[in-house]
Computed example of a mutant assay.
Amino acid sequence: MTHEDDFDSLPDQDEEWVSKTRRKKEMQALQDLGKKLVALNREQLAKVPLEPELLVAINECQRLKKGEAIRRQLQYIGRLMRLADAEAISQAMDLFEAGKQAHDAHFHKLERWRERLIGGSNDDLTAFVEAYPNADIQHLRQLVRNAQKEAEQQKPPASARKLFRYIRELAEN
């Protein structure tokens, strides 16, 4: 055996060497993405580009109740994810996440309005009516008064919830 034969047994220089740690991290990332997929509802799953076998595995995981069975199913989903277009799936998941964050921000904005109206002055009411000109001022004042009275008496916040529903209704229209 010559010295040149040793070079023939080495992998091509064009192939990229990937450490075992990096491969494990990549596999864990795929499994984590699979976990996020399992958390989606059917309507959301329909919007994600999934292989049929992967979709079946996700549906099966959603059906399972026992912890160990779920763990094994998630590992299986992770293996199937290696064959799937993880980039396209990840992009679809990012869109869901962005939509959820926007929804949460809108919800928090409405909650801040409710708190300002309940704890605030007439200026806050005026600012709200300027922001939402379709508001029925008399109805709004009544809801605010009821919520304030409820808070003073330390009762459950039924009127505050009604006020929030009315604010949300105005925001949606």
Rank of each mutant, 00 (worst) to 15 (best):
M1K: 08
T2C: 13
T2P: 14
H3P: 01
E4P: 10
D5K: 13
F7R: 15
D12H: 06
Q13L: 15
D14W: 12
S19M: 03
K20G: 08
K20D: 13
K25D: 15
K25P: 07
M27K: 09
Q28D: 15
A29Y: 05
Q31E: 14
Q31G: 10
D32L: 05
D32H: 12
L33A: 06
L33N: 04
L33V: 09
K35Q: 15
L37N: 08
L37S: 04
A39P: 00
N41C: 07
E43Y: 01
E43N: 09
E43H: 15
K47A: 04
K47I: 01
V48G: 04
P52A: 00
E53C: 00
E53P: 02
L54T: 04
L55P: 01
V56G: 07
A57S: 11
E60R: 00
E60Q: 06
R63L: 14
L64M: 09
K65G: 02
K65V: 13
K66Q: 13
E68C: 11
I70Q: 01
R71T: 10
Q73F: 03
L74D: 01
L74R: 01
Q75A: 08
Q75H: 02
Y76F: 14
I77F: 03
I77W: 05
R79H: 11
M81F: 00
A84R: 09
A84M: 09
E87L: 14
E87C: 05
A88S: 08
I89C: 06
I89Q: 07
S90G: 15
Q91E: 10
M93V: 11
M93C: 03
M93F: 06
D94P: 04
D94C: 00
E97G: 12
A98D: 04
K100A: 15
Q101K: 11
A102T: 09
D104I: 03
D104H: 05
F107E: 02
F107A: 05
H108T: 09
H108Y: 04
K109N: 11
E111I: 08
R112T: 12
R114W: 02
R116M: 06
S121L: 08
D124T: 14
D124H: 06
D124G: 00
L125F: 07
L125H: 00
T126I: 12
F128H: 04
E130Y: 13
Y132V: 03
P133E: 10
A135S: 07
H139L: 13
H139R: 14
L143P: 02
R145L: 09
Q148C: 07
K149Q: 01
A151Y: 07
Q154I: 13
Q154V: 13
Q154P: 10
P156H: 06
P156W: 02
P157L: 04
P157V: 01
P157K: 04
K162D: 08
K162N: 10
F164E: 00
R165F: 10
Y166R: 11
I167V: 03
E169N: 14
E169S: 11
E169M: 07
A171H: 02
E172F: 07
E172G: 14
N173W: 03
N173I: 15
